[in-house]
Design a protein around this nucleic acid. Structure first.
Length: 257
DNA sequence: ATGGCATAATCCTTATGA
């Protein structure tokens, strides 16, 4: 079983890349972030023609998340229950016996700003909801664009800003691990300076000046079945790419209940 | 010190991103 996450930075612009990527990778589930389109503008027909179901939670211009799945998704939840928020950042579905939570975590803009405060409140609400989800679903994957580089090695040494690497953000990430979740990427040997996002400016990709902010956290029940977790830099090299690369996690058997 | 690129919408300028 293969699950992936990809912040596409506009699904309308990136649809050709997504279709090519699905044809090449045949993922069982692909979690998308930053759709930047309303549900009525979602390219459902093209994705169904590629063999995928889709559950979506979109809005105009900003944010927006979706999960594409080969098998029929069930138990769909949109937004963090009980957290009043007009921003569409969460969608969850059960896929082939695995609870998949797809999130586009707030950026935060600058430490100490109103948006930073919102980011921390959002993270607190998410954590409490995910705690319950783990109780309800033994096999769970929390994935998406976390907008947090959890450790020093997850940020290029030249990264000057505090945002994405600040102590409160890293504490919130640690809080998710304290629920029992495991950073699948760190279960395996990885190249030095592995990142999932590179700025469009400053030739950042060519210089590998990036951040590892897109993550796949797995519940303990999935750990022994997890066989790989990689960043796929291929689409970042294409013309007009997303600034994020897909992150892929693989399991050695379909963990169907 | 600033912007540098990309996207969408308000569309020749602004908001946001990371």
């Amino acid at each position: 079983m293969k699950i992936a996450t990809w912040n596409v930075n506009s699904l309308k612009v990136r649809l050709p890349h997504v279709l090519d990527w699905l044809a090449e990778n045949q993922a069982d589930a692909l979690c998308l972030q930053e759709l930047k389109c309303e549900d009525k503008a979602f390219p459902l027909a093209e994705l169904e023609a590629a063999g995928y179901h889709a559950v979506i939670n979109g809005q105009k211009t900003y944010n927006g998340v979706a999960i594409l799945t080969r098998s029929e998704p069930a138990e769909v939840v949109r937004d963090i229950p009980g957290f009043d928020d007009p921003q569409k950042r969460i969608i969850a579905a059960t896929v082939a016996g695995v609870r998949v939570i797809c999130g586009y975590f707030p950026n935060g803009q600058a430490v100490g700003s109103d948006k930073f405060d919102y980011k921390l409140r959002w993270l607190a609400a998410l954590t409490e909801w995910v705690r319950g989800e783990i109780d309800r679903h033994d096999r769970l994957v929390l994935t998406g664009d976390f907008n947090i580089a959890p450790e020093e090695r997850d940020a290029h040494p030249d990264w000057k800003d505090e945002i994405h690497v600040s102590a409160p953000e890293r504490a919130a990430f640690a809080g998710l691990l304290e629920l029992g979740l495991i950073d699948a990427f760190r279960l395996f040997d990885q190249p030095e300076r592995s990142f999932s996002w590179w700025d469009y400016r400053m030739m950042a990709f060519r210089r590998n000046f990036g951040l590892r902010i897109d993550h796949v956290l797995i519940s303990p029940a999935l750990r022994s079945n997890c066989t790989a977790c990689t960043v796929d830099k291929t689409p970042r090299k294409l013309e007009r790419p997303s600034d994020h690369a897909p992150v892929i996690v693989e399991f050695d058997s379909p963990p169907v209940a």
